[in-house]
Design a protein around this nucleic acid. Structure first.
Lengths: 320, 320
DNA sequence: AGCGTTGAGGACAGGAGTTGTCCGCGAGGG
DNA sequence: CCCTCGCGGACAACTCCTGTCCTCAACGCT
């Protein structure tokens, strides 16, 4: 009977890992007869977890959204990600869910294996509060839509605005996603153009529903995703680089700046901060936040932005 | 049949809700004999989930951190909190876990009941990126330590720095936590002082291990926590209020400012922004971020900070 | 030190549930 | 039209679960 319960859990876990499973696949994985799989699926349904099934040659089982949330079966990495996210959320920018986040976090941390707890702490300590989130933000709903399409090998239809703002409807077989700098990219086989393409996720507007399933294909020449994406992306993660002379010691600034660039000491009271930015406005403000005097060495555009800010603040405080 | 598996899941869920359970409590909840509970606990252990037990009159079962992560059984609110946290994390400030967060999020959203999905979307749309997190930040580890002590009715020992910075060792029976503005407060019965006290969590340094269990007591006069805390806190959630005349329409600003104060239209191109802040530095920077001209109406201290910023930027850009 | 409480676990008998096998049915896609 | 895949009834062999009853072993309190 242990076997039965354990198998039910494993079944639930399998259904959470991949969207669609055929009965015989499940039977293989669970090392039981297909008939038993059917019975197990029935059990899950009786427990209130809706397992949808489709018949026919492309049939299979998939776990649907039901009345109650099934137990979440996370792997190590995912558990760490959840813990870290919750930790930032409890002290984070979203009003109203702090208490609940904390409750969920307590639940999770109680059972978190110690090796994972170490990883959570390590990751957390690298966390640097970002003062501004410049550039286009990616919609979380779009991200998850694409991510599930990748995971389940389902065709994706979406409107895509290219860098000139021209819209086009794309039908692709999504391969994977990669994030680079602050951006997300989708690597996919463009069905109409019959070629591999890289799309910026912030320019994608998915259309529902997602299309039929396809058999995944390999990237050309067996390259991995990271290489593929970076070879396709012309833009660097940051639009430009900057060098700023800070009138403070490197140690004093390392907490706030360490995560965002290189701090090179010049002498006891001065250091050079090398960093990159998508937008000079945000970088200018970030620098102002420190309460420390600084001199921009490059680029000139940053100097211009800072001059503009200086003027605006002067106007605002009536000292012009 | 189903009963056995379902009961194992419920047992796991119970053990996640509260830390410590006596065998007979569990037997009551699960409506089986204590002997069966013992056997079920054994089953969980065989499945790899460590259930620690202590004998004696204060004995009981508790779920420990094991080699593998047990299935997480979240209630509705917690699931929403996790989803929202993960969504912000995927586009968030922590480098290196975006992919994994996304994977976990995909898993969760696939099984998220639609009513919960609506709540997640609603919450998400209220999200306003906060440019700066002023004031002392609360350590997530401290938060969870206190939260579990509250949940499990375990005494807590910690060092507390009062507002003068004087440290003292406290032994308390934690009652609950509340957050107010950006702050967290712990409401607890101070054992040595034999009275109720309210502590600011950012000034608490817990000592390990937590103490023995205690029987929870009611707050005096049956008041609820929120009332109790707000009656004890002299400081408002914001240290001071500000009024700023913005040279832009209220609609144009509502996205960025809506969550942080009241926007009152004056005319088509002007509006008044009323808000609060813990620190004028951050407010000044937040205002500068908009790219919109503004005039501070009050308080005078904010004007002074803006003047200071103006000077610093002027120096940085060499236009002084 | 003694007592009560709480968990651990062996033994046992009856009963409940599970499993694989074999079968025919129905739905969907090529 | 046929193939694939999910559905579910029947059945026999077998597993293992459950409640009851028992004795031990820790632990805390008096």
């Amino acid at each position: 009977m242990l076997q039965t319960s354990a198998r039910l859990l494993r079944l639930l876990s399998l259904l959470q890992i991949r969207r669609e499973w055929s009965g015989s696949d499940l039977a293989d994985r669970l090392e039981v007869d297909v008939r038993t799989v059917r019975r197990d699926v029935d059990k899950l349904r009786n427990l209130g977890y809706p397992v949808n099934a489709t018949t026919g040659s492309a049939g299979g089982y998939r776990l649907g959204a039901g009345a109650a949330l099934p137990p979440l079966l996370l792997d190590d990495d995912e558990a760490v990600a959840v813990a870290v996210s919750l930790r930032t959320a409890t002290s984070g920018p979203i009003a109203g869910i702090e208490d609940t986040s904390l409750r969920a976090l307590t639940k999770l941390e109680q059972v978190l294996p110690s090796r994972l707890r170490r990883r959570v702490n390590a990751l957390q300590s690298y966390t640097v509060p970002i003062p501004l989130r410049p550039g286009p933000t990616v919609d979380a709903a779009v991200l998850t839509t694409i991510a599930s399409a990748c995971r389940d090998s389902e065709r994706l239809r979406f409107d895509y605005a290219d860098h000139n703002g021209v819209e086009s409807l794309r039908v692709v077989e999504p391969h994977s996603m990669a994030n680079w700098g602050r951006r997300w990219y989708l690597v996919a086989w463009d069905v109409d153009r019959a070629d591999w393409r890289t799309f910026r996720v912030d320019r994608v507007s998915p259309r529902t529903p997602t299309g039929p399933r396809f058999t995944p294909r390999e990237l050309p020449n067996g390259v991995d995703v990271a290489t593929f994406v970076s070879s396709r992306i012309t833009a660097a993660p940051w639009r430009s680089r900057a060098r700023i002379l800070m009138h403070a010691s490197a140690e004093a600034l390392s907490d706030r700046f360490g995560g965002y660039g290189r701090l090179e000491p010049v002498d006891e009271n001065t250091c050079v901060f090398e960093t990159g930015a998508d937008s000079f406005e945000s970088l200018a403000l970030y620098l102002g936040m420190t309460g420390v005097d600084f001199e921009v060495q490059e680029p000139p555009e940053l100097v211009e932005h800072i001059r503009e800010l200086s003027r605006r603040y002067a106007r605002a405080s009536g000292s012009e």
